[in-house]
Design a protein around this nucleic acid. Structure first.
Length: 318
DNA sequence: CTCCAGGGAGCCT
DNA sequence: AGGCTCCATGGA
């Protein structure tokens, strides 16, 4: 633990206690691919201190995110150093990192319980160590409302714009880090401001959904522990949330590892590789895939999505 | 110029 | 319930 008092040039004093620690990854079943975990499009709540996204040298990148512990905002920084996950944070980040990065998931057991075929095997092997994130539900909801008809790289940029423009300033050592904006701040910003930040037609969706959460009308965590399809239905109450975004919130925000978001990549994959699983509706196809892949269907889906979208396979020259 | 991006709302039958 | 159209914005 290290105390870092900083004196701003404006005269205001800031005090931020920065704790440090390490998590041992050498005994972690399946290890950890940090870059794939936080840059594969599951989460838009981490950013790199070098400002890049999925470029060369990412293995040694330093990542930051914010979260809340007992209602108190925390800043967390993490980087991979040999077989350690080294962190600095405004508090004890170890339990948060374990949950956020899925470090308690037994990857070999999950893979063993999932059906094997050429595509899925290739996907596991291309990013082995990638884990499903458990992000805070409200920021997950907001960021995936922003994700519709948008490239992964731009979704990252949009969330950073929201942070910088609307997020509360948090002291982190001598630096200032922006928290992800609360629903109150997002609702108060207004549609015009959100459009100015590049959200396009998603601006009123984010505004209205944020208002619903801020006013206590609904919360994404309301879907926790509901039967799968009821949970998805519960989440589609929010404006800008259909079946696909609801599945993303279930998988990446609420830890429902059987959820399978059917985006354009996965729908294409179903049509090309698993035509027998394609139904006449989202709900039907979803049921068939989840029945085929089992309780960790979301893991297989996320590996296949990343494998195809990031061009990790051989067919990417087409 | 056109086409596309981790889709969804509104409106129609 | 299931189809059709429009929706901002930026990059290729």
């Amino acid at each position: 633990m290290k105390l870092r008092p900083t004196r701003g040039k404006t005269g205001r004093n800031r005090l931020s206690i920065v704790e440090r620690g390490e998590l041992d990854l050498s005994t972690l079943p399946g290890g950890l691919d940090l870059r794939a975990t936080v840059e594969s499009g599951q989460s838009y709540l981490w950013w790199r201190t070098d400002g890049e996204t999925y470029t060369e040298g990412g293995d040694g990148a330093t990542y930051r995110t914010t979260d809340r512990v007992d209602g108190v905002p925390v800043v967390i920084e993490a980087e991979r150093v040999a077989d350690k996950l080294r962190w600095r944070a405004t508090g004890d980040a170890a339990p948060v990192l374990r949950r956020r990065l899925g470090l308690d998931d037994d990857l070999p057991a999950i893979r063993a319980s999932t059906p094997s075929d050429d595509l899925i095997d290739s996907a596991w092997e291309a990013s082995w160590g990638m884990r499903i994130v458990r992000d805070p539900p409200v920021p997950t909801l907001v960021s995936f409302i922003c994700s519709t008809q948008m490239r992964v790289e731009r979704i990252f940029e949009m969330q950073q714009s929201l942070r910088t423009a609307l997020g509360a300033e948090l002291a982190f050592g001598g630096e200032t880090v922006h928290a992800f904006p609360t629903p109150e701040r997002l609702a108060a910003a207004g549609e015009t401001k959100l459009r100015d930040l590049g959200l396009g037609y998603r601006a009123p969706y984010v505004q209205e959904t944020a208002r619903m959460v801020a006013d206590g009308e609904a919360h994404p965590a309301d879907a926790t522990d509901l039967p799968y399809e009821e949970a998805r239905e519960c989440l589609t109450r929010f404006v800008g949330v259909g079946d696909k975004v609801a599945d993303c919130v279930l998988l990446f925000g609420l830890g429902e590892l059987s959820a399978v978001p059917l985006d354009t990549w996965i729908q294409r994959t179903v049509r090309e590789y698993y035509p027998d699983l394609e139904g006449d509706s989202y709900a039907e196809t979803s049921r068939a895939i989840r029945e085929h892949l089992g309780p960790y269907a979301g893991y297989a889906q996320t590996y296949v999505f990343h494998y195809r979208r990031a061009g990790l396979g051989p067919e990417t020259t087409a």
